[in-house]
Amino acid sequence: MNWEVIFHAGLATGTVLLFAAIGEIFAERSGILNLGVEGMMLLGAMAGFSMSLSSGNVWLGLGAAILAGGILSMAHGLVTIHLQADQVVSGLSLTFLGTGLALVLGEGLTGQTAAQMTLFDIPVLSQIPFIGPAAFERHSILVYIGYLLAPAAAYYIVKTRPGMHLRAVGEKPAAADTVGINVYAQRYFYVFVGGCLAGLAGATISLSVSPGWYSVQTTSGQGWIAVGLVIFAQWNPIRAAVGAYLFGALRRLILDLQGPALILGMTNPLYVNSNFSFFLQMTPYLLTILALVIGSRQAMKKRLGAPAALGVPYIRGERGA
């Protein structure tokens, strides 16, 4: 068992959760809860792989995935922003819609090999002991983009003018409207951004982390972990990144822990009884549930910093919730 290797794998697989979670943070910060992340990811994974297969170009594949996720998210936008329907129900149906579409359109793609992202080292940074080999060696460009995306998103949301508009729309849309911000346009835009990032997350799986198309098992519930991660991270991109990488590392740790007989001179329980790994496999889901339970308490929600208008449709001319 080698920590360098585990963190290396964790950063790669965690990038998937990172993209999806940051996308969801954008959507939720604007006041729209989108539970369809899993569906958008799956459609993105399929579109990315399919395009990369037919064109032989990964970049086209990435573009197709981003578009696919974004377009699908517009269905949610239309229903929840324009028609002011229940966001939870719409989001859940979006998951089914995305899953169904991806499976039908992805028929026959299983078992094929498409062009995939190349892995490369970052010249100087890879020389740093421990961190270098784990974080700056043999990664795809997506992982490196992920490192930059989290702080960039945090800066955008907290420090910039459009970011302030985003927050205003999510906290008090009526007030934002009075100062001339177009609430509907803002919400559509950030739901679209969320969809694009979810699609990119899907393509990160199908073009880089585990290349290929494996129907529903391609994402296997990671979209839901991303939704939980958003609450876990208190709508903060940096915390979301930390959580995503930790969950990523955990997936690998579970397997690697089965290897050595001794850890730090003590008997390794997973070596003696591999059934214990069930408990470790459970942890991301357990933490997600925990985050949701804590996040569901009104007082706690305020302390966590949930956008005040999250889940509430904005109807122009009526008094805000």
Binding site: V88, G228, I289, L292, V293, G295, S296, K301, G311
Partner: peptide, 10 residues
């Protein structure tokens, strides 16, 4: 709503 979400997620 949050309760429903939590339940749906479960």
């Amino acid at each position: 709503i949050w309760f429903i979400i939590a339940f749906m997620l479960l």
